[in-house]
């Protein structure tokens, strides 16, 4: 769907993107991660043809990115904003028409969306009369009204209350199911694991990590497990097939230990070692969350 190749973008004082390459496959939900000021918005602006890269190329569906692709992209910028004094219905239609929709078609689709999101009564309202959350909802509708193939969302959940954030998340997933490719930037990691198929991590203008969420997390597995057992707290003599990272004693002989399994051993070995000694309640692999990976990677570069 989207192929970004060796993008470099230099601003007067600093470098926003250095040699960034990405592949976004059709139908994916792609997360663009990175701390503030990493270069996410610069990259998004390049994909939207708001600015052009100093070097490097972007391909959209195999074609070099050009003006004809604009109507197939929907963009929700990080800094939201609409014409304050314009009626909301008229404004949505205007924005959709700028994306190549006919007036009638825009009206038809807008009615469906307004009904779906409970906004029917807003049609004649001016933007300045709406609350901030309502404005965000309206802007989301404006972004997707022309049914773009690629939807680019810059920090889509910022500014939404939890209820509306959930609604918007569901709408994003529904659009994805209908075939739209989603590219969104965020620094909120919870949403990443929930939503994304693939991610790329950008830090200080460099891409430092990318791939599917599953493969990235797998590559960060380090044979750490959590074991919960019932019995007197164990003492270890060094012959056990693992190393204890952390031990916690609970009430009623409930104990939790975090262990790192020794090389050449498996979780089965651990169980075999422990079974005769205690009553095991749980054994769970500890896979680092995206949040932990994110922080680790960013700190590594610093």
């Amino acid at each position: 769907m989207l192929s970004i190749r060796n993008i470099v973008k230099q601003y007067a004082g600093h470098r926003a993107l250095s040699d960034v390459s990405l592949e976004v496959k059709s139908g994916q939900v792609f997360g663009l991660l990175g701390p503030n000021g990493a270069g996410k918005t610069s990259l998004i602006r390049i994909i939207n043809q708001i600015t052009a890269p100093d070097s490097g190329e972007v391909f959209f569906d195999g074609e070099k990115l050009n003006q004809s692709h604009i109507n197939r992209i929907g963009y929700l910028p990080e800094e939201r904003g609409l014409y304050k004094k314009m009626e909301i219905g008229e404004q949505m239609i205007y924005l959709a028409r700028l994306k190549g929709l006919s007036r009638d078609e825009a009206v038809r689709r807008l009615k469906i969306w307004f009904e779906r999101l409970g906004m029917e009564t807003w049609w004649k309202k001016k933007i300045e009369e709406l609350s901030k959350g309502m404005q965000q909802k309206a802007q989301f509708v404006a972004t997707v009204l022309h049914e773009p193939d690629l939807i680019i969302l810059d920090e889509p959940f910022s500014g939404f209350d939890p209820v509306n954030a959930e609604i918007i998340k569901d709408e994003i997933l529904a659009l994805n199911k209908k075939g739209a490719t989603i590219l969104f930037s965020t620094h909120r990691m919870e949403s990443v694991e929930e939503l994304c198929d693939s991610i790329a991590l950008i830090h200080k203008s460099h891409k430092i990590l990318d791939g599917t969420v599953k493969s990235i997390r797998n590559s960060y597995r380090n044979a750490t497990y959590l074991v919960e057992y019932n019995g007197t707290a164990l003492t270890f003599d060094g012959k056990q097939p693992f190393e204890v990272v952390e031990a916690k004693e609970g009430s009623d002989n409930d104990n939790t230990i975090k262990i790192k399994i020794a090389e050449n051993s498996t979780s089965n070995d651990v169980l075999q070692y422990l079974l005769p000694k205690v009553h095991i309640n749980m054994l769970q692999e500890v896979i680092p969350s995206m949040n932990e990976i994110f922080i680790e990677q960013v700190n590594l570069i610093r």
Binding site: I50, I70, Y75, G81, L82, Y83, L95, L98, Q139, A142
Partner: peptide
């Protein structure tokens, strides 16, 4: 100035030059 301060400018110029 209105388009700039209301931040709608970015939406518009993702559609037109």
């Amino acid at each position: 100035i209105e388009e700039k301060t209301s931040r709608i400018i970015e939406v518009i110029i993702s559609s037109v030059k």
